[in-house]
């Protein structure tokens, strides 16, 4: 079997005495979309934080394409192809929507250190940025300041920044939470498109089980920071432990 795109080995994050992520070992392959579910406070976001380098792993290792990235800073991980969209929207509020996306494109094209080139004259960047804005349906708002967008549009831009990075491993943390009902399907379709690309590996935190069932090849369940279940959607949803811990409520919703 091919080497996993991303792997965590006994990954543990402690905040003082509180264990937010508890020895999670998991492998994620390219061409696969894994949904991560679990109740509020289960440690899903913290798991992403540790993988992306936002918080330090207290113990364990993180491997990207087989290489240990546990000690790398966040930016270096991104440059190696690990991209992330935040649950709490994190944008450049005082810059235009277009500029937000272009900054991600510019990072992806490794042009940030150019001191005297004119950013506005770089058509390759502008075209790539516009293409992303089309994908997340924000083209008509290009000129607006990111901080002035509605909450739903900011969520779209959050996804846009990740897509613009063209990573190999995508970490989506509840990407459609807070989006209007008519905007969410387009974003979910985008995620489906990404999954279809056999070179991409997608991790998706998502509460709505209907969405999870439709998109996921595999589900892992976190409970109190620990891995409680791991398998195909059918397997996981049948497991008692999962019903008890979490899914009982959500299955009823779905």
């Amino acid at each position: 079997m091919a080497e996993p795109a991303l792997e965590t080995r006994s990954l543990t994050v402690r905040f003082g005495g509180h264990v937010a992520v508890d020895a999670v070992s998991c492998r994620f392959r390219a061409g696969e979309l894994t949904a991560i579910v679990g109740p509020n406070g289960a440690g899903k976001t913290t798991y992403f934080n540790a993988i992306s380098g936002r918080v330090h792993a207290t113990q364990g290792q993180i491997l990207l394409d087989g290489q240990d990235i546990t000690r790398l800073p966040m930016a270096a991980r991104t440059r190696r192809g690990l991209g992330r969209a935040f649950q709490l929207t994190s944008l450049f509020p005082g810059l235009s929507v277009f500029e937000n996306v272009r900054l991600a494109v510019q990072a992806r094209q490794r042009k940030g250190a150019r001191l005297f080139a004119l950013a506005d004259a770089d058509h390759a960047m502008a075209d790539a940025a516009r293409a992303v804005l089309d994908q997340v349906q924000l083209r008509h708002l290009s000129g607006r300041l990111a901080g002035e967008l509605s909450h739903g549009d900011q969520r779209k831009l959050e996804v846009g920044l990740l897509i613009a990075l063209e990573p190999r491993v995508f970490l989506f943390d509840e990407p459609t939470a807070g989006m209007s009902a008519d905007a969410a399907p387009a974003i979910l379709r985008l995620i489906e498109d990404i999954r279809r690309d056999a070179t991409r590996c997608v991790l998706l935190v998502e509460h709505r089980m209907g969405v999870v069932r439709r998109l996921a090849d595999r589900i892992i369940v976190l409970h109190n920071g620990a891995l409680a279940a791991d398998g195909t959607p059918a397997e996981v949803m049948a497991a008692d432990v999962v019903r008890d811990a979490y899914l009982g409520r959500s299955l009823a919703d779905a």
Partner: peptide, 25 residues
């Protein structure tokens, strides 16, 4: 107005996001 200057603005606006996008702040 060069890419470098735009990165500085990005860092001013949100250094965490700048780092997450791949700029070593």
């Amino acid at each position: 107005n060069a890419p470098f200057g735009r990165v500085l603005q990005a860092i001013r606006e949100n250094d965490l996001r700048a780092e997450a996008v791949g700029y070593s702040v």
